[in-house]
């Protein structure tokens, strides 16, 4: 087949987010025998969200390992394997359960390199399905990424597209540091273009999903997708929104955000985690402390999760996190206030 035909095939190739993650895992294990997967029900069951799927049949039980329900233990096992030459990829079944593994991630994984004077590295990846919208209530729906972004030594990613889910996971597996990847559960079935080859999406770079001139909307994880949809609607209303998909919250790509705000003069930050003390607070403060502050024509606005646990009732559950309508309304208010 001529190469241009191959490229054409590659361009139209679509995978779901979950399939993209699985493809990355399979390619990483094929390329590097140090890589192995483990977690609760990742083997024959295929993972609670079907992400590991058939990998146990392709790579065997020695490399796709079902673990007891021992989150602290398996997080520690990832640390131990990482510091002795392996490349573990751990799945925490629901990101909420990471609360049981905090000790190993925060005290051990994040700090070992530093405490040991740079004489060890901890190349481990933790995948954490998170977020609300599935009716799973308060202990199975949280967005805890900001907690970990507060910890020097960790890297924290939130890919929002199948393309990034694959490319950032492969970059994370290559990375010599502990990397946590928060995957929004509602994104698993979303589809998008995913090249077949093993490519990397660099950690620490935000993506401009849509260019615009009136307002910058920064979204992380599923909120980047909602922001894109909101921007479509805003466009029909004559508002030109620039949408930035954060992708990585530690390290955070302040440059891309700052350059955009310098151009649009307005900033709206949207994230699903609890608004108070969250990602938006950090981004707002970074802008407020920088010279870009002088370019603002309006106050910075944050849309984040309510100061409440995620409720079970579907109406309440929707009300607890920002929706597309909220983004349209907030952006419209921000842009119009200057025109009144």
């Amino acid at each position: 087949m001529p190469s241009d035909t191959l490229e054409a095939v590659s361009e139209i190739r679509e995978l779901s987010y979950a399939e993209a993650v699985r493809e990355a895992l399979g390619q990483a294990m094929e390329a590097d025998e140090r890589v192995f997967l483990f977690g609760e029900d990742v083997g024959v069951y295929g993972g609670a969200f079907g992400v590991s799927g058939d990998l146990v049949h392709r790579f065997g039980k020695e490399r796709v390992i079902d673990t007891p329900i021992s989150e602290l233990g398996i997080a520690g096992a990832a640390v131990g394997a990482a510091i002795t030459g392996m490349r573990p990829v751990l799945e925490i079944q629901f990101s909420d359960f990471v609360t049981l593994a905090m000790e190993q991630l925060v005290n051990q994984a994040a700090k070992i390199r530093f405490m040991f004077g740079g004489k060890a590295s901890v190349p481990m990846v933790v995948r954490l399905p998170g977020g609300s919208g599935t009716g799973a209530a308060a202990q199975h729906s949280q967005s805890l990424e900001a907690w970990f972004a507060h910890v020097p030594g960790l890297k924290v990613l939130q890919p929002s597209t199948p393309h990034d889910a694959k490319g950032m996971l492969l970059a994370a597996i290559d990375d010599p540091n502990p990397v946590l990847i928060f995957e929004h559960k509602l994104l698993y079935k979303t589809k998008g273009h995913v090249p077949a080859e093993a490519y990397r999406v660099p950690i620490g770079q935000a993506a401009i999903r849509r260019e615009g001139s009136d307002i910058t909307i920064v979204g992380s994880s599923i909120m980047a997708r909602k922001a894109e949809a909101a921007a479509e609607r805003l466009a029909t209303d004559g508002i030109s929104a620039e949408v930035i998909d954060l992708r990585s919250i530690r390290p955070i790509d302040f440059t891309t955000i700052a350059e955009s705000v310098r151009k649009t003069h307005r900033l709206l930050v949207v994230y699903e985690g609890v608004k108070t003390m969250g990602i938006g607070a950090e981004i707002s403060a970074m802008i407020a402390e920088s010279e870009v502050f002088d370019f603002l024509d309006a106050p910075i606005v944050r849309l984040g999760g309510a100061d409440a646990p995620i409720p079970y009732n579907p109406v309440l559950e929707k009300a607890a996190v920002p929706q597309e309508d909220d983004i349209v309304a907030a952006a419209t208010n921000l842009v119009r206030r200057g025109e009144a």
Binding site: G73, I74, G76, G80, T84
Partner: peptide
Amino acid sequence: PIAVGVGM
């Protein structure tokens, strides 16, 4: 728990 990973 780290010892478990070293054992692995």
